[in-house]
């Protein structure tokens, strides 16, 4: 959910000028915002499942340190979505385990 109105920050006037494809679905986004922000705005919280026990993970540290939020972005696995800016047309996939490079499969 986006914070459209705010008592201190005022109205959010940014345009939803981009769209990313998340596991095949189109998700509205804002160019330059972290991928993780666009996903949370769309109510997506599970970003990957772990290699050992297959448990779900999502945003945790928010500053690019913990690597919990990594996903496969444009065919590249282990991309930290909390610090990687959205570009229009990006293809984002829920990552299973350590992920795989697009050209490896």
């Amino acid at each position: 959910m986006r914070v459209e109105k705010h008592p201190i920050l005022g109205d959010d006037r940014r345009k939803r000028d981009a769209a990313i494809i998340v596991d095949g679905d189109r998700v509205e986004a804002i160019t330059g915002e972290p991928i993780a922000a666009a996903l949370l705005a769309a109510g997506i919280r599970k970003f990957r499942v772990t290699p050992r026990f297959g448990s779900p993970r999502g945003l945790f540290c928010g500053i690019g340190r913990c690597t919990d939020c990594v996903m496969t972005v444009d065919g590249r696995p282990n991309v930290r979505t909390c610090v990687t800016p959205v570009k229009d047309g990006m293809v984002v996939e829920t990552q299973a385990g350590l992920g795989a490079w697009a050209d490896e499969s």
């Binding site: 945790f60 340190r65 913990c66 690597t67 919990d68």
Partner: peptide
Amino acid sequence: MGLCQGRT
């Protein structure tokens, strides 16, 4: 020894 190299 994982991706974050012990930071967490």
